[in-house]
Computed example of a mutant assay.
Amino acid sequence: MTEISAAALRGAVDLSSLRGRAAQPSAPQDAAAAQDGASQASGGVVVDVTDATFGEILELSRSVPVVVDLWAEWCGPCKQLSPIIEKVARDLAGRVVLAKVDVDANPQIAQAFRAQSIPMVVALIGGQPVPMFTGAVPEEQVREVFGRLLEVAAQNGVTGTVPAGGGEEAPAEEAEEAPLPPLHAEAFAAIEAGDYARAITAYQRALAENPRDEDAKAGLGQVRLLDRVQGLDLQEVRAAAAAAPLDVEAQFRVADLDLAGGHVDDAFSRLLELFSAVAPEQRATVRERLVELFDLIGSADPRVASARTRLASLLF
Rank of each mutant, 00 (worst) to 15 (best):
172 A>V: 09
62 R>F: 05
165 G>H: 13
199 A>L: 08
180 L>V: 10
245 P>F: 06
144 E>Q: 08
238 R>F: 07
16 S>D: 11
78 C>A: 05
145 V>T: 14
278 V>I: 03
152 V>L: 02
12 A>L: 10
53 T>G: 14
101 V>W: 08
112 A>P: 01
231 G>P: 05
275 F>R: 05
167 G>Y: 11
23 A>K: 15
110 A>T: 03
152 V>Y: 09
171 P>A: 10
294 F>R: 08
24 Q>E: 05
57 I>L: 13
150 L>N: 00
215 D>G: 15
98 L>D: 04
213 D>I: 02
149 L>K: 11
218 A>W: 11
57 I>Q: 11
270 R>G: 04
218 A>R: 12
221 G>D: 08
289 R>L: 12
240 A>D: 03
298 G>M: 03
144 E>W: 06
223 V>P: 03
21 R>H: 11
220 L>N: 03
51 D>Y: 08
116 Q>E: 07
258 D>Y: 09
248 V>L: 07
227 D>W: 04
225 L>G: 04
157 G>C: 06
271 L>H: 14
311 L>C: 07
150 L>W: 02
131 P>I: 12
269 S>Q: 15
49 V>K: 04
263 H>S: 10
196 Y>N: 04
247 D>N: 10
7 A>I: 04
299 S>W: 15
278 V>W: 11
32 A>M: 09
40 Q>M: 14
